[in-house]
Simulated scan of single mutants.
Amino acid sequence: MHSGRVVFGAMDEVVFGRPAAEAVVAQMDRLGKTRAFLMVSGTLNRATDAIEKIRHALGSRCVATFDAMPAHTPREAVIAATEQARAAGADLIVTVGGGSITDGAKAVQLCLANNVRSVDGIDPLRTVKGTVPAMTAPSVRQISVPTTIAGGEFSAAAGVTNARTKVKEMLRHQLTIPRAVILDPAITMHTPEWLFLSTGIRAVDHCVEGLCSRETHPYADAQAMKGLSMLAQALPRVKANPGDLDARMNCQIGTWLSMGALSAGVPMGASHGIGYVLGAVYDVPHGYTSCVMLPAVMRWNKQANADRQALVTEAMGEPGRDAADVLDAFIRGLGLPRSLQDVRIGPEHFGRIAEAAMKTPWVPRNPRKIDSPAQVREILLLAA
Rank of each mutant, 00 (worst) to 15 (best):
I149T: 15
E83S: 14
T289F: 09
F37S: 00
G335Y: 02
T131I: 15
S3C: 13
S144K: 04
M293I: 02
F154Y: 15
G335A: 09
A20T: 07
V24I: 10
S271N: 08
P373E: 03
E169Y: 03
S118G: 10
P19N: 09
A329R: 12
A47P: 00
Q303M: 05
G97A: 12
A264M: 07
N301G: 14
R338P: 00
A232N: 10
V96P: 00
M28V: 15
L381D: 13
I149K: 01
D49T: 12
E348Y: 00
M268R: 11
S198F: 09
G351L: 06
E22Q: 15
S263Y: 00
V78C: 13
L382N: 08
E348A: 11
E378W: 00
A264L: 04
Q309D: 09
K106Y: 06
E169G: 04
V363W: 01
I79C: 10
A87K: 14
P19D: 03
K226R: 15
R248C: 04
G227W: 02
R30Q: 14
Q233I: 11
A240H: 01
R126K: 11
T34C: 09
I182H: 00
G152Q: 08
T188Y: 02
M1K: 13
T161Q: 07
A247K: 02
V277H: 04
M39K: 06
T148Q: 08
T65S: 10
P146W: 06
I79G: 07
N305A: 13
W256S: 05
T131L: 15
P361C: 12
L380D: 07
S41T: 08
S229N: 14
A220H: 00
H72S: 05
Q109F: 03
E318S: 05
R248H: 04
T313R: 00
T127K: 11
E169P: 03
M298N: 10
T360F: 11
L327E: 14
Y219L: 09
P133E: 12
T102S: 14
G97Y: 01
A157H: 10
A357K: 10
D184M: 03
V145K: 04
A324I: 06
C111A: 15
A36Q: 08
K168L: 09
L336K: 01
P185H: 14
R30G: 13
T131A: 15
R338F: 09
R75N: 08
R365M: 12
L110K: 06
L327T: 14
A88P: 03
K359I: 06
R308T: 04
R248D: 05
G152E: 08
L125S: 08
G287D: 04
G42K: 07
L195Y: 07
C62N: 13
A357H: 09
T48D: 07
D283S: 13
D123T: 11
S144H: 01
S290W: 02
L262H: 10
E348M: 05
R5I: 12
R368S: 11
E314T: 05
R214W: 07
V181S: 02
D103I: 13
P337H: 10
V128W: 07
A329F: 01
V119G: 08
A64E: 11
F16G: 03
T313M: 01
A77W: 06
V281Q: 12
S3D: 15
V167T: 14
L294Q: 12
A224I: 02
D184F: 07
G59M: 10
V78F: 10
A315K: 04
A264Q: 09
F16N: 01
R338L: 03
G269P: 13
R202H: 15
G335F: 09
N301S: 13
